[in-house]
C-alpha cells in the first residue's frame, strides 16, 4: 500500500485561500479551509465548461465548493460501508469506483478506470526516471524551481506528457486548435486574486487565456456520438461529454 503524499500535502497547504464558508456544526475542530476544495481549483474547472462570456457569482462558487465536499463524503460513506461488511480496514480505489456505480454515477466509472490505469503506469515511470526528468525540467523551465525532488519530477513528467498529449491531438486528425478568444479582463480579474502574487501576472494571464483555448478545443471535438446507457437521472448527453474528458486527460500518452 502506498504511503501518503508529503509533497502534495505541502502543495495543498500552500493552496489554502478559502474564507467565509460556514463551518459544519458536526465537525467544529476541523479548520474551515480543510473542509472544502480550494476555490481557485473549482473555478478553473467550472470555466472549462462555461462559454467565455459567462460569469460566476461568489455565492455560486461557494455552493459548488460545498457540493464537492458533500459528493466526496457521500461516495466515501458508501465505500466505507462496503469495507465494514467485508471486514477490511482500507478504502481502496476500487471501493470508490464501486460506490460511484452503486450511487448512480455509472458514467464516471469508465473514464476513472482509464485514469487510474494510466496513473499507475505514470507512477511506475516516475520512479524509474526521476533524476533524468528532474534535470530536464531544470533545463527547460527556468524560474519554476523549488519543492521536493519528487514534486519536481512529477511536474516535469506532467509537462512532458502534456506535450505528447497535444502532439497526439494534432497528429490524430483532430480539429485544428480554435482561435484564441478575445481577452476578457473581467475573467482575468476573477482569476488573479486567488494567486495572491505567487506567480507573476503575465504568467497567470497567459495561462488563463490559453488554458481556455486548449480545453475548448477538446470540447468542440467530441468525436463519437450515439446514445450511451442512461444512469438514473443523467441524460444520454453524458456519453459524448465523457469522451471530452478523455481528450483532456492529463496523461494522454499512449
Amino acid at each position: 500500500m502506498e504511503a501518503g503524499y508529503p509533497g502534495t500535502a505541502a502543495n495543498g497547504a500552500a493552496a489554502d485561500g478559502n474564507g467565509g464558508a460556514q463551518q459544519a456544526a458536526a465537525a467544529p475542530a476541523i479548520r474551515e479551509q480543510d473542509r472544502l476544495m480550494p476555490i481557485a481549483n473549482v473555478i478553473r474547472i467550472m470555466r472549462r465548461v462555461l462559454p467565455a462570456h459567462a460569469k460566476i457569482s461568489d455565492d455560486a462558487k461557494e455552493t459548488i465548493q460545498e457540493c464537492v465536499s458533500e459528493y466526496i463524503s457521500f461516495i466515501t460513506g458508501e465505500a466505507n460501508e462496503r469495507c465494514q461488511r467485508e471486514q477490511r480496514k482500507t478504502i481502496t480505489a476500487e471501493d470508490v469506483l464501486w460506490a460511484m456505480s452503486r450511487l448512480g454515477f455509472d458514467d464516471y466509472v469508465e473514464p476513472l478506470g482509464v485514469y487510474l490505469h494510466r496513473y499507475r503506469e505514470f507512477e511506475g515511470e516516475s520512479r524509474g526516471v526521476g533524476v533524468g526528468v528532474g534535470a530536464a525540467r531544470g533545463d527547460h523551465h527556468h524560474g519554476h524551481v523549488g519543492g521536493m525532488l519528487k514534486s519536481r519530477a512529477q511536474g516535469s513528467m506532467v509537462t512532458h506528457h502534456d506535450m505528447q498529449m497535444h502532439a497526439a491531438m494534432y497528429g490524430g486528425g483532430a480539429v485544428p486548435p480554435p482561435p484564441h478568444p478575445p481577452p476578457h479582463h473581467h475573467a482575468f480579474h476573477q482569476l488573479m486574486p486567488p494567486h495572491h502574487g505567487q506567480y507573476a501576472p503575465p504568467y497567470d494571464m497567459y495561462g488563463g487565456e490559453h488554458g481556455m483555448a486548449a480545453y475548448y478545443g477538446g470540447m468542440y471535438a467530441p468525436g463519437s456520438g450515439g446514445d450511451g446507457s442512461g444512469s438514473s437521472g443523467s441524460g444520454g448527453a453524458g456519453t459524448p461529454q465523457t469522451v471530452n474528458f478523455e481528450h483532456q486527460h492529463p496523461f494522454g500518452y499512449k
Binding site: 481549483n41 512529477q154 511536474g155 497567470d204
Partner: peptide, 12 residues
C-alpha cells in the same frame, strides 16, 4: 498554459 496555469506547480 498547462504549466503556467499552476496545475503542475500547485497540485502536481
Amino acid at each position: 498554459a498547462m504549466f503556467a496555469g499552476g496545475v503542475s506547480a500547485r497540485t502536481g
